[in-house]
Design a protein around this nucleic acid. Structure first.
Length: 767
DNA sequence: GTACGTTCATTTTTT
DNA sequence: ATGAACGTAC
């Protein structure tokens, strides 16, 4: 190993051991600041540089896109630029999206699927509730969706969910689950969870595909292994089954994603699945001072159970004592942070980029920001309203998504009447309901309408279209929107992406609409955001044209906000504790250390949830290299109501001599203002007892079943492909003089009537 | 069919 | 405090 010093330079003996360990299953258990990610990266470098492993055969899974990018950069340094270009690095979701884009046709789906984000998912959920006649008030779309998401992460499908449903709520979820999946499928869309689930299914149902990936990826590495959920666990297991070269790195004490299905037991399963696994512990911390580690450990040691007992230690000195500070309210708390930062910056020892302010909930960022703004202290808020969640950006993306996949009903509904073009709520709801009931996209419905308008008499499916839209004005609005979409679809392959966007937004009147709706100033800002998106699109100009749009859309669907955190900008980082995982800062402030916030009130009555909150504190505290400040407020405004706050129980777990407690500046003020506000009553109108709601009448039978009487090969709603017209959906089919006459709505090409014997229509595989 | 005003719930954490 | 969902007026 001494023959390749570059790959190992700067590593201590234990890290070296981990990096150079013989092939086979390896589990690295490592505390915070022990160089986990570094070990992972060097392992990749070692495989390529010293073991002469072809980078093409390496798959590295990182927790964020940012980590993936950094790994690439570091490898370029270690190995020389371009050496690792063929390596596959990325998050689970991104890797799955890639696999699926290549192979999803094996599951009988179209390649250009849309990826639905949380907002889209919620919209689908609302549609589901309306279809099933459930009342949104009684059945929170979020809660149902969360249950479905949890199930998917455990690889429980709608069928299995129904079978094991025990409670009434489960029954509701089970029915919604089925419908939800149908709607996604009709829209040729996948949600985040489907990316994982469908990939696992692909590899399970198609051994040849699995074999191909196993052969390709002979070396698999995964970071933040403690945060993998069931689906991710299975995926890794499938891929590694053949060559068993799997190298995972994790820390049980930093598991903070149980709420999205992460399961620490995956670490224990690792040793069971691979009995020959080598387990390596990295216990030395290089990041923090002893003072900081002591505080972090004091809290984590009180957690209910820990499996592998690590003993963190550091050669770093004791350092500055951890500060405990109480503010009067969240505003003063933020002021204290701001003035301390100002003081340290003025001292000349620190720059703004050295600081991070961490909190449990995004809502807390507001108070913090408001302390920075008047002092003109540079700061960035990670999270909050993300760029790609802004309305104007989502609208812009909706148009682009339609260009790729006009079956995407959510995008269709989003921009059908934006900018306003005379398609009102009623018309829209009518279209969505009919489309949903028939199991066809709105796009196809409009194509049928158009065909009917041309007197083609094709659109006779259930007579649904005939009675659709009486008013000529509305009809014209719909048809011109359809023409717009078809034009985009047809321009998609002729124009480069940037030009396509310019052309499209000009034709739509995007800028004018924004200015009209939001006024000169706000509208102008929003338009600039749209232009920003257009700039992002420019990055894909060097890809093959037919991949540009799909790659852009995949990219924007899967970026997370931490990805854009850049050290170069000298600004204070304001960030949630969750997002802070994997980062480090010289000075860290954790604010809102109060009961109800950390631990969060939603977690206080559950032992394991409480432990997760504890780990969250641990993660936050161990981000700090030199100075750590723990803050809490005496009173806090929640939902506009002022409440008394109790210091977090985690603070009680820290021996007082480990903390330096600042003078309680809040108290004088507090005593004046406390007065009589100690109300906590929450028991206003309790929801009525759960009445078993009209369990909805069965929804209109969708997917006209192939009629047993007639011997037709095609039926309405079916997806087909034609050599010349491309993909389409069957509108109707009937036997005419011994041949089958099929009417098909083709994407971008309108409705055509074809004879099955001549047309050579390919049926899309049904599962 | 749209535009505006009122009520009401809403907040964990994220790909 | 803020934003979404509903009702009423144009």
């Amino acid at each position: 190993m001494s023959d390749e010093p570059d790959m190992l330079s700067g590593l201590n003996p234990v890290q070296r051991q981990a990096v150079t360990v013989a092939p086979g299953p390896v589990l690295v258990l490592a505390g915070p600041g022990s160089g986990k990610t570094r070990v992972l990266t060097h392992r990749v470098a070692y495989l390529i540089g010293a073991q002469r492993v072809d980078p093409f055969t390496i798959l590295a899974v990182t927790f964020t896109n940012k980590a993936a990018r950094e790994m690439r950069e570091r490898l370029d340094t270690l190995l020389g630029a371009g050496q690792a270009a063929a390596l596959t690095v990325g998050t689970f979701h991104r890797i799955c999206a890639r696999f699926l884009r290549r192979d999803i046709v094996h599951l009988g789906r179209e390649r250009d699927f849309a990826i639905y984000d949380s907002d889209d998912q919620l919209r689908v959920m609302r549609r589901v509730l309306r279809d099933l006649n459930f009342d949104e008030k009684k059945h929170a779309p979020r809660a149902i969706h969360a249950a479905i998401s949890r199930a998917k992460n455990e690889l429980v499908d709608a069928d299995a969910y129904s079978r094991q449903a025990r409670t009434y709520f489960d029954e509701v979820v089970a029915r919604c689950f089925v419908r939800y999946q149908e709607l996604l499928r009709d829209a040729n869309a996948l949600d985040f969870d489907d990316l994982l689930v469908e990939t696992v299914r692909l590899l399970t149902q198609h051994p040849d595909v699995l074999e191909r990936y196993q052969e390709r990826y002979r070396h698999i590495l995964a970071d933040e292994y403690q945060d993998t959920n069931r689906a991710q666990y299975v995926l890794l297991k499938q891929l590694a089954a053949k060559y068993r070269n799997i190298f995972v790195v994790g820390d049980e004490d930093q598991s903070v994603y149980a709420f999205r299905g992460a399961d620490i037991r995956n670490i224990q399963s690792f040793e069971r699945d691979y009995p020959e696994a080598q387990v390596i512990m990295l216990e030395q911390n290089y990041r923090s001072t002893q003072a900081i580690l002591d505080v972090a450990q004091a809290v984590i040691n009180r957690s209910a159970q820990r499996r592998h007992d690590k003993k963190l230690w550091t050669r770093n000195g004791k350092g500055v004592q951890v500060q405990l500070i109480e503010g009067y309210d969240q505003d003063e708390e933020a002021q204290l942070v701001a003035s301390e930062i100002a003081r340290l910056v003025a001292s000349g020892d620190y720059r703004y980029g050295d600081f991070a302010v961490m909190y449990r909930t995004n809502a807390q960022s507001r108070a913090v920001e408001e302390a920075f703004i008047p002092r003109t202290m540079p700061h960035i808020i990670v999270g909050g309203t993300r760029f790609y969640e802004r309305k104007e950006i989502k609208d812009a993306l909706a148009y682009l998504r339609l260009a790729l996949n006009p079956l995407d009903n959510i995008s269709f509904g989003r921009v059908m009447n934006w900018p306003v073009r005379g398609i009102g709520q009623r018309t829209q709801e009518d279209l969505e309901r009919r489309a949903s009931a028939l199991g066809i996209p709105i796009y196809t419905l409009l194509q049928m309408l158009a065909a009917g308008a041309n007197g083609a008499d094709a659109a006779d499916m259930d007579g649904a279209v005939r009675e659709l839209v009486a008013a000529p004005r509305t009809r014209n609005a719909l048809l011109s929107f359809l023409t717009l979409i078809d034009d985009v679809i047809n321009q998609r392959n002729t124009l480069p992406l940037g030009a396509l966007i310019d052309w499209l937004f000009d034709r739509v009147g995007f800028r004018e609409a924004l200015l009209r709706e939001y006024g000169e100033e706000d509208g102008g800002d929003r338009w600039n955001n749209v232009l920003e998106l257009r700039n992002v699109a420019e990055n894909y100009a060097n890809l093959p044209r037919e991949n540009q749009l799909a790659t852009l859309l995949e990219e924007v669907a899967l970026v997370s906000d931490v990805d854009s955190v850049q050290e170069e900008r000298d600004a204070i980082t304001c960030i949630t504790l969750h997002q802070a995982k994997g980062l480090e800062f010289p000075v860290v402030f954790i604010v809102g250390l109060e009961e109800g916030l950390l631990p969060h009130s939603r977690s206080t009555d559950d032992r394991s949830a409480l432990d997760e909150e504890r780990r969250l504190f641990y993660v936050g505290a161990t981000r700090a290299k030199q100075r750590l400040y723990l803050l809490h407020a005496f009173r806090r405004t929640v939902y506009g109501r002022m409440n008394m706050a109790t210091p977090s129980r985690f603070l009680q777990d820290i021996p007082p001599d480990l903390l330096q407690t600042a003078a309680k500046r809040g108290y004088a003020l507090a005593q004046q203002a406390t007065m009589f506000t100690g109300r906590t009553s929450l028991d206003r109108g309790k929801p009525a007892l759960r009445t078993r709601p009209s369990v909805a009448p069965a929804p209109a039978t969708r997917r006209a079943a192939p009629d047993a009487q007639r011997a037709v090969a095609f039926f309405a709603g079916q997806k087909v492909r034609h050599a010349h017209f491309g993909e389409g959906i069957v509108v109707s089919s009937k036997l005419v003089e011994g041949d089958e006459e099929v009417t098909v709505a083709f994407v971008g090409k309108g409705v055509r009537r074809l004879l099955a014997s001549f047309a050579n229509l390919q049926r899309a595989e049904e599962e």
